[in-house]
């Protein structure tokens, strides 16, 4: 990122830039254009919901859109989107003091540490463990019938990546894997601030696969010159 004096590049723009621009800039610039080259190089192309932390205002509309879309309800014989209870959202807003909001969502990891951690033996026919990557949608799914609720996937996600996967408090079975809403993520569509996009990303991007606390600390340092969020981890 380059500061442009002629354009009256303000201190605030600079602060915003160094915190966040990395995401969208690097991505849309390098990725969109070079994705073909990538594919040729054999590196997997990850298409995921990407957050621009400089645009996110922490309003949580994404949570409600996600929940409404992924938890439809039968109404008069038809299935309609739900009322958007954020408790059931797969994308989750983590908010901090000083004021940083980090939307946390499945990073669609190419190497799927969550799947590799699954203790259920691969099925002879499909080769799938209980947790598996759906080849059509590229989303992570759980075969609830075979899942033993051991929480290994959630632990792998939390210790190695974003920590999005949460075990159900009662069953221990994994939840909150992004479904991409069948290829049309509703969080992206409903974000009032265009802070979310559904794009190809590379795993060396800044913030990629990091947990919300780590991301928040980097953002807070840039924005406020401090990353003291208190003792809660």
């Amino acid at each position: 990122m380059k500061a442009n004096d002629e354009g009256g590049y303000s201190r605030r723009q600079f602060l915003k830039g160094c915190g966040l621009g990395a995401g969208s800039l690097v991505l849309l610039g390098q990725f969109g254009i070079h994705s073909a080259a990538w594919a040729l190089s054999g590196e997997p192309v990850l298409k995921m919901v990407l957050v621009d932390y400089s645009k996110c205002t922490g309003c949580r509309t994404c949570e409600t859109a996600c929940s409404a879309s992924n938890h439809p309800v039968p109404v008069g014989g038809k299935e309609l989107p739900g009322l958007g209870n954020p408790y059931y959202a797969n994308i989750r807003l983590h908010n901090f003091n000083p004021d940083v909001d980090v939307a946390n969502v499945c990073a669609m990891c190419a190497d799927t540490p969550c799947v590799r951690a699954c203790r259920v033996e691969p099925d002879g026919e499909t080769g799938r463990r209980a947790l598996y990557r759906d080849e059509a949608t590229h989303t992570i799914r759980n075969d609830s019938a075979r899942c033993i609720g051991c929480r290994s996937c959630a632990w792998a996600c939390a210790s190695q990546r974003t920590g999005t996967i949460s075990p159900n408090p009662a069953t221990g079975k994994p939840e909150r894997m992004c479904t991409l809403c069948g290829g049309d993520p509703q969080c992206v569509k409903k974000c009032p601030f265009s802070a979310l996009s559904y794009v190809e990303v590379r795993n060396n991007r800044k913030f990629y696969g990091q947990g919300p606390e780590k991301i928040a600390a980097q953002l807070a340092r840039n924005w406020y010159g401090t990353a003291d969020f208190g003792g809660l981890k």
Partner: peptide, 8 residues
């Protein structure tokens, strides 16, 4: 440095 919104 930031614009912040309340719920929804």
């Amino acid at each position: 440095v930031r614009d912040i919104a309340c719920y929804c």
